[in-house]
Design a binder for these strands. Structure first.
Length: 641
RNA sequence: GGCGGUGUAGCUCAGUGGCAGAGCAGAGGAAUCAUAAUCCUUUUGUCGGGGGUUCAACUCCCUCCACCGCCA
């Protein structure tokens, strides 16, 4: 019965990260898929979890003065709480510090070691402390060299353990080519194949405890811990009983979909399959890499402060509206843009105007004309407006399941919204408010019954995306308070005459745009008066201004107006290029506390990256003075505004 | 530099060797059950530029431009 089982995973999230939109999106997507398959009666399993070992966790715990385990026990709650808030229905949550995981990791390592898949070798080269990876000379940032290393790169010579990944290269290329569904979307598959055109090296899987103690100890050498991939990736099988519960493992594995962000493509399409191959475990059916949410056109990042906090939107518009937006706005695989404007537009047009208002107008008439009960069921006559509507609704049914299969939920949702619009049209054609004035109420009841039926099916189709709201909608139309049954969406006439409708609030109240500020009165005086466009306070706050301390300054080669400044902005360092060299010498600016626009799009000026802009007052070309902070010893990184 | 992708309406995108599309936005109208919601009608396109194949190219081929991704 393998074809009826559905096992979906998200990556395990690094427990030290602050949960952000990317985590939330992947997990919601998995949740939507899991809910859809549960409705189809598939034996569904949805796994998520946290990755809890590593340098950063160790350091963060030290900083707080607590043992690492206590630290991660605290940190994991942020994820667990967020998932609860976002209506995530994972069946299991695995933490890589759990014995059920660590024990399996060790067993796997021991087995591979015994079978000669893992060997010891000396590494003599460079190590990047920041990214916790071995690097080569080519990876060094511009301006540094083997003799002039940046602070975060160190020369090391140490013995480590390696997994013989390279020997699986040919097999993997072959496998990917023969299984087009293995890596999706297609262009990610090509990327992986491109990556595999050059020679694959073996994978270093250990770190000496002297450098990293917080990890799973190698079973064959107590001086080392397992380095990330042989720890983290194994979660997908350790959580479903690999080597622990054969029955469960056979039931769940191989997984149908492993969702990942595009940033971890290589680890999941190269490391993971070769690891599984070495273990003798079947490949997952599909690794699916989705795109990123951009803030407008720019990458979201902590440093520019343009990251979208999913909870803000959940608080303001409801969790389900957020889920709907994320699922309908992203064409899966591509990047998508998250803006407040787009959110409000979609919320208002799809949820408030189309679906919410449809529900509202139908319910109002049922309450008024049918004594708040489901009216008498009718039959659909071929060629009637009722038949047209029902056709459209059934198209949505088919389309939704097809598009879930194709990993294009956005298109499925669009089909449902078409059906909703069709229902609004249908009501316009039948005009039940006119029918209500007739002696014969049968036509009125028919119109309302058919409208309720359309809502019943649409609500079932939207349930995996908006579970709470659709359950509320379904009780309001008399469809009961349980989960929708998938068989019922294809059948007309499931609503039972006389069922009393539950009272309820409007589902998606329209979002009113904040009132436009009063228009500035145009001066009718002399035309040479320069009028400056007035902006709203929100516009002003789009610019993130912070205090910054100038640590270093030097002229930019070949540019007599520019200085390259190294700034300290709170905990963060950044480099900017400023056109102030005609007015300040480097010595004059070092140590000054200036004001910087932090979320300016980074630019490359004279071949040098500039991440931000400083504020200065100028009059003509001759006079320029930096805007500085008055108070002595004021900290950098403070908000200005 | 190598490989790949994208470029279609104001915006977000779908699409096909045979009449250029949807949603949103804009304009006009109808209606009054409904959340200032709905419904109808409607404007706008060198389908990135150029060349080629073809009876016919937005689609296939070549080339150039712009942007993006992966790798180096």
């Amino acid at each position: 019965m393998k074809n009826e089982s559905f096992y979906v995973t998200t990556p395990i999230y690094y427990v030290n990260d602050k949960p952000h939109i990317g985590h939330a999106y992947t997990t919601m997507l998995a949740d939507m898929l899991a809910r859809s398959h549960r409705l189809l009666g598939h034996d569904t399993w949805f796994l998520t979890g946290t990755d809890e070992h590593g340098q950063k966790v160790q350091e963060a715990a030290e900083k707080r003065g607590v043992p690492p385990q206590a630290h991660v026990d605290t940190m994991v709650k942020r994820f667990e709480e967020l998932w609860e808030r976002l209506e995530i229905t994972h069946d299991d949550f695995i933490r890589t510090t759990e014995p059920r995981h660590t024990k399996i990791v060790q067993e796997i390592l021991q087995d591979l070691y015994d079978r000669g898949e893992i060997y010891q070798a000396e590494y003599d080269g460079l190590y990047d402390v920041r990214s916790e990876t071995f690097v080569t000379e080519k990876d060094l940032p511009e301006g540094s060299s083997i003799d002039n290393l940046p602070d975060h790169v160190k020369k090391i010579k140490e013995t480590n353990y390696f997994f013989k990944m390279s020997k699986y290269q040919d097999w993997l290329v072959n496998y990917i080519e023969e299984n087009p569904e293995f890596i999706q979307p297609d262009f990610r598959r090509n990327e992986t194949l491109g990556f595999l055109r050059k020679e694959l090296s073996d994978l270093c899987i250990s770190r000496p405890k002297s450098r990293l103690a917080w990890g799973i100890e190698l079973p064959f050498d107590a001086e080392y811990v397992t380095y990330v991939w042989f720890d983290a990736l194994v979660n997908y099988i350790s959580a479903v009983g690999y080597r622990r519960d054969d029955e469960q493992f056979a039931r769940r594995w191989p997984s149908q979909v492993q969702l990942i962000g595009k940033d971890i493509l290589t680890t999941h399409t190269v490391y993971w399959p070769t690891m599984l191959k070495a273990m003798g475990v079947e490949m997952p059916q599909t690794i699916f890499a989705h795109g990123w949410w951009l803030s407008g056109r720019d990458k979201m990042s902590k440093s520019t402060g343009n990251a979208v906090n999913p909870l803000d939107y959940a608080d303001r518009f409801g969790v389900d509206a957020l889920r709907y937006f994320l699922m309908s706005e992203m064409s899966l695989g591509q990047d998508a843009s998250f803006t407040e404007e787009a959110f409000v537009k979609r919320y208002n047009s799809d949820l408030a105007n189309d679906l919410g208002n449809l529900t509202s107008r139908v319910l109002k008439m049922v309450h008024t004309h049918c004594d708040s009960k489901v009216p008498v069921a009718c039959e659909i006559k071929t060629g009637s407006p009722e038949a047209d509507l029902w056709d459209q609704v059934q198209t949505a049914v088919t389309e939704m399941s097809t598009q879930i299969e194709n990993m294009r939920p956005d298109l499925g949702l669009a089909a449902v919204m078409s059906a909703v619009r069709e229902a609004n049209k249908y009501i316009g054609i039948r005009a039940p408010w006119k029918q209500a004035k007739e002696e014969d109420k049968a036509p009125l009841y028919e119109t309302l019954y058919v409208s309720l039926e359309a809502l019943r099916v649409c609500s079932a189709l939207l349930y995996p995306v908006m579970p709470a709201k659709m359950l509320a909608l379904r009780t309001q139309i008399g469809a009961g308070d349980g989960e929708p049954a998938v068989a019922d969406v294809k059948v007309f006439g499931k609503l039972i005459e006389g069922t009393v409708l539950a009272e309820g609030e409007g589902l998606f109240p329209r979002h009113q745009k904040p009132k436009a500020p009063p228009q500035p009165k145009q001066s009718k005086k002399a035309e040479n008066v320069v009028t400056v466009e007035e902006i709203a306070i929100d516009d002003f706050f789009k610019a993130q201004l912070k205090t910054a301390k100038v640590l270093e300054a030097e002229p930019v080669e070949g540019a007599d107006k520019l200085l390259k400044l190294q700034l300290e902005v709170g905990d963060e360092k950044r480099q900017i290029i400023a056109g102030i060299a005609k007015h300040y010498t480097p010595e004059q600016v070092i140590g000054k506390m200036i004001i910087v626009v932090c979320n300016l799009k980074p630019a490359v000026i004279r071949g040098v990256e500039s991440r931000g802009m400083l504020l200065a007052a100028s009059k003509g070309k001759k006079k320029l003075t930096l805007v500085t902070v008055d108070a002595e010893g004021f900290p950098s990184g403070a908000k200005v505004g």
